[in-house]
Design a binder for these strands. Structure first.
Lengths: 414, 414
DNA sequence: GGTGACTTTGTGCAATTTCACAAAGCACCC
DNA sequence: GGGTGCTTTGTGAAATTGCACAAAGTCACC
C-alpha cells in the first residue's frame, strides 16, 4: 500500500530548500544538511534529537567549519563525492567532532552545485532508502537551479534599484515605494547605508561571502547592496523590525567592527556607516555620509577608531566644511603661523606639542606621556607656545579655534 | 610802488585753502588758521615760529579743542563773530592756552562758512592790514564755496564707486583700478571694510561726524564710504601706508572699540571689521565678513566682546556653516537631547551647566563661580551630565563636539 | 674652544583640586 | 505626615598640579 506520495516523495516541487530538508528528514528519519559547493549552509532539518558538534558548528556559523572541511578534503571525501554519482558513506572523524554521514553530491549537468548530508543516527539505511536519498539529491539540484535562475533576475532588479537610489534617480519618495512594491521588496522603516572598503576590487564571490557574513551576524539585515570596485555598498536594517534603533546601532557597530578587524573569517576591510534614514529619497546623502566616515577613518585613524556611524563622528563631520571655508580665506591663523615659523627656524615641535596637549584635553600629565617627554618639558613648551603664539591656553574659545584649524589642516592634507 | 599783486594779494584764485593760508601768512606776517563752521581745521600756515598751545592742539587734533570752543562761546566771541562783518580782536584766555587772536567770520550769503584766525605775534595790525585780512576772508569764502560744490560731485562719484564695489559690479580687478584712477582715487594696497551699526538711520550729518571721528583717530583713514540705513560702511586703510599691518590692526581695533563705547563724543554703535584684503574685487566678501562680525556680536555678545576684525572671530566664523550643516541633518545630538529631556522633565539645568563648564575651559572652580553654585554642586551636576548624556568630560573631541553644537544652536536661534 | 641662548630633566614645596562622605533641603507620592 | 529620591552645601583628607629653582645637555656663533 505504498501511495504515490509515499513511493515518490521527491517528485513534487518544493517551496524552499528548507522544506526539502524537512521532507528528507521525515522520509528517512535522519538529520539532514544541504550545503552549496563552497560548503555554505543552505538548509537543514530542524528539531533533530541528536546532532554532532560538527553539524552544530555548521548551523551556528552557517558554514562547515574550516577544520572539518580540511579533514574531509585530506581524507579524499570531497574528491570521492565529486567523482561519484552514488551516495558515499563517510566514516567518523573524532578529532573534529564529525560522527559519520551518508553524503551525496548535488549535481546539474556535470557540475557539483552542493552536497546533501545525512546523519544516520544509530541506524543504517538500506537500498530503497539510498535510492530515495539519490532522488532527494536530484530534487535539491532542481530546486537550486531554479533558485539560482529566478533570483538572478530578481537580484539584478534589486541591484538596479539600489543604483537608482544611490544616484537619486527617483522623482519622489512615493515613486521609490511604488518601485519597491513592484519588485516585491519590503522597505524597512529605518535603515542606514554601510560602505565596506576592501583592499582590492570586490568580485561576485567576495560580495556573496560578505553578504553571508552580514547575514550570519544575526542582527544586521542587508536590504539592498551594490558593488563599486573595492567598495561594497550595503543598505542595512535591523534583522527584527521591532529592535530599538539604539540597540541595533550598537550591535551593527560591534559586528562591523569585528568584520574590520578580520575576526570574521579573516576578511580585512574598513567600514563606514551613515546616519539612520527613513526617507529613501535621501539614499545618496546617506551614501555620502558613509563615504565621509571612511575618509575620516583614513585621515584621522587614531581619533576615529571607535567610530562607525556618521553620527558618531561628532565635530569631525564639520571638518570638510570648515576646511573649505579656511581654504577660501586669505588670512592664515596668526598664532599657528608664528608657531610654525618658530618650529621651522628652530627645528622645534611646538605645533605638535600644542596639538597633543589639546587632544589630551589640556591634561599636562597625559600629554607629556603621549609625547614621551618630562612633564616639566611640556610645561616649558606650553609657556613658549603661549608666548610665541600669543595664546591663552586657559581659554576654551581660543583652544577650540586652534584645535579646529589644526584638524582641518589635516583634512586638507597640509 | 605797490604792485597790483601787492595791493590786491587775495584777488587771485587759490589752489587750495593751504595756499591761501600761506599767502595770508606771507602778507601779514602772522600764523593763520582757517576753520569751518564746526571748528574743524581746514588749513593753517606752517613754519610759524610762535604758536600758542590752543593752536597747536587744534592742528594736532584737526579741530579746535572742546575747552577752547567752550571758553570762546562762554565769552560771546563766537556770537560776536557771527554778528559782525568786521574783524574782531579776541583777548587771551590763559586757562586754555589761548593767547589772543584777530578773527573774522568767513561768510557767503549771510551764512557763516567758517572762521579765519590770525595770531598777532607781538605786533598789532593796522587799518590797511585789517582791510587785507577782510579780503583774505572773502577769498577764503570763495574758495570754500568752490570746494564745496566741486567735491560734491567727486563725493557722489566715490559713493557710486563704493556701491559698485560692494555689489561686485566690476568685471575684474583691473577694471576697478582703471575706474579708481579715472576718478583720481589712490587705492591703498591693504584695506578692510568696517561696518558701523548705529541705533537708527544715519543721515548725512551723522555720517560726516562719523567720518570726522575716524579722521581724528590719527591712524585710520577712510578711503571710501557708504551708508545703508543704520549702517555706515567704511573701506578703511592705515593712515600711513608704511604702517605694519598688525600694528594698524591693533590701533584700528582700539579706536573703533572706543567709538563703540561712546568714548568718542558720545556716539554709540556696534562695529564690525572684515579681514584685510588686497583685491578690491573681493570687497563684497569683506563686507559680508564685517556684517558677520556684527551678527556674531549680537548673538554672542559676551564671547565676542573683544572681537573687532573678522579674523579675531576664531572658530565662531565657522558657526554659520556648522549650523547650516546641522540644520540639514535629521539626527539630533543624542547626548544633548537626553540632557535637554532631563532638564525639561526635572526642571533642571544640566545643559546650561555643561555649556558654562565648557566655556570656563573645564575649570570647575571658575564654572561654579560663574554659575553661582557651590563647587560640589557643580561636581555633582557634572557627574549627572556624564551619566545621563553618556559623556566623557575628559575627552576633548566629545567636548568640542558638544560645544560646537551648543554654540551653533544659538546661532540658529534655538 | 668658549659663550650664550634655548631646551630638557630633576627635585621639592606650596597651592589647588578632587573626591568621598555627611547632612540638610526640597519636591513628590502614597 | 512620612518616606523616597534628587539636589545642594559643607568638611576634610588625599592626590594632583603648578611652579620655582638647579643642573645639565644642545646648538649656533664668534
Amino acid at each position: 500500500m505504498t501511495e504515490p506520495t509515499e513511493s515518490k516523495p521527491f517528485a513534487q516541487s518544493f517551496d524552499s530548500l528548507e522544506t526539502l530538508a524537512e521532507t528528507i528528514n521525515e522520509v528517512l528519519g535522519c538529520p539532514v544538511t544541504i550545503e552549496d559547493a563552497g560548503h555554505r549552509l543552505l538548509a537543514y532539518s530542524a528539531h533533530d534529537p541528536q546532532t554532532d558538534s560538527a553539524r552544530l558548528a555548521t548551523i551556528v556559523g552557517r558554514r562547515v567549519p574550516e577544520n572539518v572541511i580540511a579533514s574531509l578534503r585530506r581524507d579524499g571525501v570531497i574528491q570521492r563525492l565529486a567523482d561519484s554519482l552514488e551516495p558515499i558513506r563517510v566514516p567518523p572523524i573524532d578529532e573534529v567532532g564529525f560522527s559519520g554521514r551518508l553524503a551525496i553530491a548535488i549535481r546539474h549537468k556535470d557540475a557539483v552545485l552542493g552536497y546533501l548530508w545525512l546523519l544516520e543516527s544509530g541506524k543504517t539505511l538500506g537500498g530503497r532508502e539510498l535510492e530515495l536519498f539519490k532522488q532527494a539529491a536530484r530534487a535539491a539540484a532542481d530546486k537550486m537551479v531554479r533558485l539560482q535562475s529566478a533570483p538572478r533576475k530578481i537580484r539584478e532588479g534589486l541591484r538596479d534599484f539600489m543604483w537608482m537610489l544611490l544616484h537619486g534617480q527617483f522623482g519622489s519618495e512615493a515613486a521609490i515605494r511604488d518601485k519597491a512594491e513592484q519588485i516585491g521588496l519590503a522597505l524597512p522603516a529605518e535603515w542606514h547605508v554601510v560602505v565596506v572598503q576592501a583592499a582590492g576590487a570586490i568580485d561576485e564571490r567576495e560580495e556573496q561571502r560578505l553578504l553571508d557574513r552580514v547575514a550570519a551576524s544575526r542582527s544586521v539585515r542587508t536590504v539592498l547592496h551594490a558593488v563599486d570596485r573595492a567598495q561594497a555598498i550595503l543598505l542595512c536594517a535591523p534583522l527584527l523590525a521591532e529592535t530599538d534603533r539604539r540597540i541595533y546601532a550598537r550591535e551593527a557597530a560591534a559586528f562591523f567592527r569585528r568584520l574590520c578587524r578580520g575576526e570574521e573569517d579573516g576578511f580585512r576591510a574598513t567600514v563606514g556607516g551613515s546616519a539612520f534614514g527613513q526617507q529613501y529619497a535621501e539614499t545618496a546623502s546617506r551614501h555620502r555620509e558613509a563615504l565621509t566616515v571612511l575618509r575620516m577613518k583614513r585621515t584621522y585613524p587614531r581619533e576615529t577608531e571607535t567610530v562607525f556611524h556618521y553620527s558618531d563622528l561628532g565635530y569631525y563631520r564639520f571638518l570638510p566644511a570648515i576646511a573649505a571655508q579656511i581654504g577660501g580665506e586669505r588670512f592664515p591663523d596668526e598664532a599657528l603661523a608664528r608657531l610654525r615659523a618658530y618650529d621651522r627656524e628652530h627645528d622645534a615641535n611646538l605645533l605638535s606639542t600644542l596639538e597633543t596637549f589639546l587632544a589630551s584635553d589640556s591634561n599636562a600629565k597625559t600629554a607629556a606621556e603621549a609625547l614621551h617627554v618630562h612633564a616639566n618639558t611640556l610645561s616649558y613648551r606650553l609657556k613658549r607656545i603661549a608666548e610665541i603664539g600669543g595664546i591663552d591656553l586657559a581659554d576654551m574659545d581660543q583652544k577650540v579655534s586652534l584645535y579646529l584649524v589644526l584638524k582641518a589642516e589635516r583634512w586638507t592634507g597640509g
